[in-house]
């Protein structure tokens, strides 16, 4: 099964013309245009100009089956800055039959002639299932432990703006990699762009055979962080403790928390990143999270809006033609 990835070659192929479901298998020549366009939106946003006519008359629905204030708000602002009509729908996940709700919702939204559908769902593959049933462009805003492509794009944009490149950089992704869609999308994107990716965490939080995705695995921060150009911390969900994957918060922070001493092992000036929301004192120390020069956590949020504008822009152009 050395060719385990082959099944996905071209998975993004035709679907990607209309949807953004994941970054696995996406070629650099398709990733770069997103980043370049996002770059221009950063400048536009900073100049406080808007481009209210680009998506005028288009309907964007934020369909969130899982709570997320920041991602939903980011998509909402991105859509509004481009002039789309944005509607937020939070679907209760406690309804009796989630799956039926999913496809029923899909056909309802289809009948309403939605143009762009931003989907967040607790189940891996749910946006792909929706994409097969609707005419709208589907954008995966995080599905289970599968992918979160816009997060990876905004992370890449943040890094690229600091180093001017992604090629040849070393990025460490630390913490609960096993349950992280952010980690998976970042691994796909960064390895495609020629970065070296390390994942660091206790073996219970490292997914099986993750080396096959082209990363190096470390189980201690001291070795793993050495000479890296950027450190991405992942959020540790409290339920991991109850699931027995990690014995306690204090033990986790002792061995896998990012503090100043550990950060000092990285290359001087290395970027500190976190997709948020942070658990201060669990995976990251406040002094590091708020570091004046090295922490780019707020900048990630800013890049998020620009990247999502770029994604909406490009996908709606595809839908137009």
């Amino acid at each position: 099964m050395a060719e385990g990835g082959r099944f996905f070659a071209g998975q993004e192929g035709s679907a990607s013309q209309r949807h953004l479901l994941g970054l696995q298998g996406m070629h650099p020549t398709r990733i770069e245009p997103f980043l370049d366009l996002a770059e221009s939106y950063v400048l536009l946003n900073r100049s406080r100009k808007t481009q209210r006519d680009l998506l005028r008359g288009r309907t964007l629905i934020n369909l969130f089956f899982e709570d997320s204030t920041r991602t939903r708000t980011s998509f909402e602002i991105a859509g509004k800055r481009l002039g789309a009509d944005v509607i937020n729908m939070s679907v209760s996940t406690s309804s009796v039959n989630k799956g039926e709700t999913l496809l029923d919702t899909a056909s309802t939204l289809n009948a309403m002639r939605t143009d762009l559908l931003v989907v967040r769902h607790a189940q891996s593959g749910a946006p792909a299932l929706l994409a097969r049933k609707v005419d709208a462009s589907v954008i995966n805003a995080g599905d289970g432990t599968h992918e979160h492509p816009t997060q990876a794009l905004l992370d890449a944009l943040t890094i690229r703006r600091h180093y001017g490149r992604l090629q040849g950089l070393t990025v460490a992704i630390c913490g609960d990699v096993a349950h992280s869609r952010v980690a998976r999308s970042n691994i796909h994107l960064l390895t495609a762009m020629g970065s070296r990716v390390r994942v660091i965490g206790p073996p219970t939080l490292i997914p099986s055979e993750v080396e096959a995705l082209g990363v190096e695995v470390f189980h201690d921060m001291e070795t793993g962080l050495r000479d890296v150009d950027a450190v991405m911390m992942l959020r540790l969900q409290r339920e991991r403790m109850s699931g027995g994957l990690v014995p306690s918060e204090r033990e986790y922070f002792r061995f896998f928390g990012l503090d100043s001493a550990r950060l000092a092992l990285a290359r001087p000036g290395a970027l500190v990143m976190h997709p948020g929301p942070m658990n201060r004192g669990v995976e990251i120390d406040s002094a590091v999270a708020d570091h004046a020069t090295q922490s780019v956590i707020q900048e990630q949020v800013e890049m998020g809006v620009a990247v999502r504008m770029a994604v909406l822009d490009r996908l709606s152009r595809r839908a137009n033609s």
């Binding site: 099964m1 891996s124 593959g125 289970g144 432990t145 869609r181 998976r184 997914p207 993750v210």
Partner: peptide, 15 residues
């Protein structure tokens, strides 16, 4: 089945 494919798909694996 736990392994590369389940990891890629983000599916909970069974060893």
């Amino acid at each position: 089945t736990e392994g590369e494919l389940a990891t890629r798909l983000g599916l909970p694996g069974i060893p």
